[in-house]
Amino acid sequence: MFNTLKRTLTLGSLVFFALFANLSVAQTVQDADALAGPPDLLGIAERGKLVVAMTSFDNAPFYSVKDGHLEGIDVDLSEDIAAALGVEVEFDRTAETFNDVVAKVKNGEADLAVSKISRTNSRALVVAFSNPYVRLKNALMFNRLSLAQKSQGKDLGDYVREFDGNLGVIEKSSFANFAKTRFPNANIIAFKTWGEVVDATISGTVDAAYRDEFEVRRIAEDRPETSISLRTVTIGDARDAIAVAVPWNAPRLLAIVNQVIDDRATELNADDIIAMYRNSIAVEGAH
């Protein structure tokens, strides 16, 4: 009910809703015409739709196709942003990698990228990032056997801080960069895919894999046998911020995205996301 009202109010108007919520509909439309709208929102308004880039592969519970339609945390957020703008949302799922998704925003092929994108310094050079809508702790996934043999009863915290073994990461990922600064003594080994990193950790080729808490814990959900050979250690003081990528020259769009994120009362943590992931898997399995 409220959503419909909001949509009606802002229909045809490009000026964001909150400032004018206390004015009458007619007045809002009139004012919007007077301002002619901020240039970064005009294109979207003329098209009548918000183009959101996502990777071509699914990434439950952030975005995945279920029963023929797309759903997830990122899908909900994109729809909320589009509703705030008073337009429809259209998903562009042609990008193969996370970097390609960011490139789409940078090149103007998409209005936003909402695709479980990590906020990194190198990406921030080419696009603007919203406030994070999910924060995930970093996590290491150790091969239990090599952990027991190399830590030799040492305090696990000390062992992790001084970690000097082989550390597996996905090549050119945000974590490949974090690894160098956070584990300066480690021998960092990059793999093409996360699956290869996990396999190398199980076989003991690397002593540990490095990524965010959700991805690390998801392994135990997908492949229960790995709970025997792998052990998760989350890092309390290293966080990965998941944010929306916005073109660098779209300050009003960025403000609206931030406002939508801020207005959401709930902040998701890894436990919530794992629970949502478990749900989406369970439902898929039932079909």
Binding site: R217, A220, P224, V233
Partner: peptide, 20 residues
């Protein structure tokens, strides 16, 4: 593995540990 996941659900010892 499924037993380990179930037994250690929500506790820190068997499967998860947090360090700084």
């Amino acid at each position: 593995g499924a037993i380990v996941n179930k037994e250690s659900h929500g506790d820190q010892s068997a499967n998860r540990l947090e360090v700084t």
